[in-house]
Nucleic acid binder design. Structure first.
Length: 573
RNA sequence: CGGAGCGUAGUUCAGUUGGCUAGAACGCACGGUUUGGGACCGUGAGGUCAUCGGUUCAAGUCCGAUCGCUCCGACCA
């Protein structure tokens, strides 16, 4: 490809975003934003995405059959799984042209994931135990109406994803595939993409998919959205959303002080309270009123912690958990929002207390009376110590892994894959069963396995760059070689053109910057685009005996004899 | 969905208490000098100031609504 023929150019005045991948991919002409979280892939970006997907496809072909499902489907499929109105990010589409008489009024779903399509599909073709196990996958655009799309390709509203679904006659067979077939295939993919070293498996929430943990493939990356908690002795990573945690020991007072109500008008946040009472947050108790399904409950953590609703939900064994509204809080506590505490509560309410509170002495909590807080509360004396404490605090830096009491090591990471054991959740919804050896109907077990291919492009751009631009790993670089000539001398152009053709014939992908422009501009663009090998032909290089060759990841250039250049390039790929 | 900021040329931005015949840089076109890190000289094209409404003698500027973008938070199957 000649640069002069390439659609989409670099733009040095393009906006600087907080996110590197958004900035660099747009400056270098890989993507163009259409709206928040939605991008056009320009030729360079499209080539990178295609190469990522080729690698994913090659590995998935070893463990499943590729199919291609529709992005748009009727709503009734989503009604059958009860997800039509429960998936917050679901896009629904209607025919927009109200003026047209031919228009129908039906509503459709733009799939955010394809269980609703693949399960009825499998049901049409595979009914006998002899058909199992099997797996199908596709690479598709997905639609999720993220309330906050951000960070370039890291979190989009339309994005590319590979989704594979596996079908089994038993849970054991599902787990065997899950851990021994899908997981190694995923590891191979990340290795081939050049992020294998930095990619770990983390335990994460199964969401509404499964009660069990799901497994996330997380690429360590400073600007990632996720926080991982690593247990060294077990070599296990937990996503913060599920990390069990024990608060480190904090020195407590020896003497029990006198309990006391303190008047503090409008002191409703932890921040204000700490200032007002002049005590640290870890001497306070944070009390929140929740609605768990239809039941109202009280949950309390130490003041310097947040409540982890995923963990709390698990403890409560409820489907929906949300903070109670103003009226409910008033009814339960008798006070305005902000003064709830674990004392003076009605007898019939269930109170859940985090284990961070257990060792506390002379602690503070709301009085359940507007404008009042109570200090120097002690277990036994002022309030009965509950039989059971729970762990539903959001793990934070310094916390211990409860089982071994070792301090977590903390990493930030970007999710590049997520696999879920679905078990019979979707086969139940669609009444998908198979017939076993005895002629009996049995439930089908399923797993689903996702890789966000466009996000991976963002993650790699985010991780692999320097102050001058992108640095693509060879396997997914838009081209292998960035060729340029310096000087408009006929001889130099002829030599460059000859090399361009030779590279082409050797199946080496080459981008030739054939513009008549300043050398500096060509160098700057080459660095920005980030193609792994740069070849320069100029009067100077010819005088030195050939072509200058430089790797994007290196700072030093070498002169290579014209006859040896193909061999040298091939060695680098 | 809450909070904050913003929307002016292809791009990134400036435009003060309302006075605009709306600017700059980069990019683009033409001519010339250059050719190893975004070089220089000259000429030129390019704008319904997001949209709709209001206030005013006068609106890019003030007010309202809508749409959109960025950042923080909530959310994230």
């Amino acid at each position: 490809m000649k640069y002069s023929q390439l659609f989409g150019k670099t733009n040095k005045t393009a906006k600087e975003y907080d996110s590197k991948n958004a900035t660099l991919l747009q400056k270098a002409g890989f993507i163009d934003q259409v709206m928040s979280g939605v991008y056009t892939y320009l030729p360079l970006g499209n080539r990178v995405l295609a190469k990522i997907e080729k690698i994913v496809r090659e590995e998935m072909d070893k463990i499943g059959n590729e199919i291609f499902m529709p992005a748009i489907v009727p709503t009734d499929l989503w009604e059958q799984t009860d997800r039509l109105d429960s998936v917050d990010v679901l896009f629904k589409a209607v025919g927009a042209n109200k003026a047209s008489k031919l228009r129908n009024d039906a509503e459709y779903v733009l799939n955010s994931t394809h269980e609703e399509v693949v399960t009825p599909l499998a049901k049409k073709f595979s009914f006998s135990y002899k058909d199992f196990p099997f797996a199908v996958y596709q690479i598709q655009s997905k639609f999720r109406n993220e309330p906050r799309a951000k960070s370039g390709l890291m979190r989009g509203r339309e994005f590319r994803m590979k989704d594979l679904y596996s079908f089994h006659t038993s849970e054991d067979d599902l787990l065997d595939y899950y851990f021994n077939v899908a997981t190694p295939a995923y590891e191979k993919v990340y290795k081939r993409l050049g992020i294998g070293e930095d990619t770990v498996i983390a335990l994460a929430s199964g969401g509404d998919f499964t009660k069990e943990y799901s497994h996330e493939f997380q690429t360590l990356c400073e600007t990632g959205e996720d926080t991982l908690f690593y247990v060294k002795s077990k070599d296990v990573y937990y996503n913060q959303e599920v990390a069990p945690s024990k608060a480190p020991i904090i020195e407590q007072d020896q003497e029990e002080k006198e309990i006391q109500d303190v008047f503090g008008e409008g002191v409703v946040s932890m921040e204000k309270l700490v200032k007002f009472l002049d005590i640290p947050a870890y001497k306070c108790v944070k009390t929140l009123i929740y609605k768990a399904d239809e039941k109202v409950i009280v949950a309390a953590v130490r003041g310097d912690y947040e409540i982890n609703e995923i963990k709390l939900k698990e403890i409560l064994n409820c489907k929906h958990l949300e903070l109670a509204d103003k009226e409910t809080v008033k009814k339960i506590t008798g006070a305005e929002i902000g003064y709830a505490g674990i004392i003076n509560l009605p007898d019939d309410i269930d109170i859940y207390i985090d284990d961070s509170i257990e060792p506390m002495k002379n602690f503070e909590c709301g009085t359940n009376k507007t404008n009042f807080h109570t200090i120097n509360i002690n277990w036994g004396r002022d309030i009965d110590k509950p039989d059971k404490f729970y762990d539903f605090k959001l793990a934070k830096e310094g916390d211990l892994y409860p089982e071994t009491d070792e301090e977590y090591k903390i990493y930030t990471a970007a999710e590049v894959g997520n696999i879920f054991p679905l078990n019979t959740k979707f086969s139940d919804s669609f009444e998908y069963t198979f017939t076993d050896e005895n002629g009996d109907e049995q439930p089908v077990y399923m797993g689903c396995y996702g890789i966000g291919t466009s996000r991976i492009m963002g993650v790699i751009a985010e991780k692999s760059n320097d102050e001058n631009g992108l640095i693509w790993p060879t396997q997914i670089a838009p081209y292998h070689v960035h060729l340029m000539h310096i000087g408009e001398d006929d001889q130099i152009i002829k030599i460059t053109e000859k090399l361009y053709k030779e590279l082409h014939e050797s199946k080496i992908e080459v981008l030739w910057d054939d513009r008549d422009t300043q050398a500096g501009e060509k160098f700057a663009d080459a660095d920005l685009i980030g193609i792994p090998v740069r070849l320069v032909i100029s009067k100077r290089s010819l005088e030195k005996g050939g072509v200058e060759m430089k790797l994007r990841s290196e700072t030093e250039a070498d002169i290579v004899k014209m006859d040896d250049i193909l061999k040298h390039v091939q060695n680098c790929l």
